[in-house]
Amino acid sequence: MWAWFHKLSSPKYYYEWAGKWLPWLAGITVILMVVGLYWGLVVAPTDYQQGESYRIIYIHVPSAWMSMFVYVVMAVAGFVALVWKTKISEIVVSECAVIGAMFTALALITGMLWGKPTWGTYWTWDARLTSELILLFLYFGVIALYSSIEDKRVAAKAASMLAVVGVVNIPIIHFSVTWWNSLHQPNMDIISENPSMDPSMLWPLLVMATAFKIYFVWLLFIRIRNEIISRERTTNWVRKLIAES
């Protein structure tokens, strides 16, 4: 087990190992997306309270889940990068930051588009939207720090550190925002985002959530492989690889 992890931390082995997975990940993502979209947009019944706009949750909720999940993955990778100084985990941090920022932005945009027909306004300083916005800022911080340091290995370590500091702060930020929100939120007619959902509505959500997770792994693998090639461009194995293809 440990020997395998050790092997996986070598860029060359990782590149080949991840390459084998790519077609599978692509296939599963596409199948699950198609199934989830059809199920969510066509088969699932209309919500009697919110009407059709509730269907936005099939991308909003998975995006929001992913935005947090990716941050945790990034922080764990950052921790590993700081303690064991493995190259792959350093790359995971910088690539996760970009993908995570995308999911967070998606969660915000779809949340706003859901809010307009449901709450009558694109933006409310609702605890979850606010937390999500701050999460986006945290991702931007990691990306900005990583891209402003020239030496990419130092940059990755600094970004890892920031990710770890951020993950310690996220519960505190989330708690303070929720608490702040309960103080200031005027009595608004908020329809809960998912009150105990009917299975006919819940299943497509679970399918979409799985699809998003696998999509994340897929995109992450592609991006990691790119970054490996970019960083190892002077090594023999990359040259051989390029020359052969």
């Binding site: 936005i56 779809t110 588009l113």
Partner: peptide, 21 residues
């Protein structure tokens, strides 16, 4: 009329995710 928002958000998500790949 609410479908407009549904298509809008699915469109944004589709564009972002496909173009990332």
């Amino acid at each position: 009329g609410k479908w407009m928002f549904v298509w809008g958000s699915y469109g944004v998500a589709f564009v972002a995710m496909v173009f990332s790949v």
